[in-house]
């Protein structure tokens, strides 16, 4: 089998993953998209391992590592999503904006900046 088939499939898979990460609102779906991207990479690793006839099979070994790490990452990610859902009652990433800077600090006449609390 020519290497271009798995490469194209993996590129498509990766693109779907990128689209999911960038565009999906549900945090779980974002996590799943990350998994898609990881698996696209795994596919690449395995395909090129075979294509290059690697004696040590470094690609396949690395794939095993990635799978393990992905499992751990999903466990952690789902725990975070669960925690967010418990506190916010939502997992919509568009509405999770606590990383934004607080409101504009206004200089007061005596020179000290007053920071308004963000809601």
């Amino acid at each position: 089998m020519h290497v271009v088939y798995p490469a194209v499939i993996s590129a498509l898979l990766f693109s779907v993953g990128v689209y999911g990460v960038l565009a999906r609102r549900n945090a779980i779906l974002v996590l799943m998209s990350v998994e898609l991207m990881l698996n696209a990479v795994n596919l690449n690793l395995v395909a090129f391992d075979v294509w290059l006839r690697d004696q040590l099979h470094g690609g396949q070994v690395l794939t095993l590592f990635v799978i393990v790490i992905a499992a751990a990452e999903v466990g952690l990610g789902l725990a975070i999503v669960l925690a967010v859902f418990r506190t916010r009652r939502t997992v919509d990433v568009d509405r999770l904006r606590d990383l934004a800077e607080p409101d504009f600090p206004q200089p007061s006449p005596n020179g000290q900046a007053k920071v308004r609390e963000s809601s």
């Binding site: 990128v18 990460v21 960038l22 565009a23 974002v30 990433v93 568009d94 999770l96 904006r97 606590d98 990383l99 934004a100 800077e101």
Partner: peptide
């Protein structure tokens, strides 16, 4: 600061 609106997806888009 307009770019820093708290939406992680926007950041990732910029990264990409």
């Amino acid at each position: 600061r307009l770019a820093q609106n708290g939406n992680a997806q926007l950041y990732v888009t910029g990264l990409l």
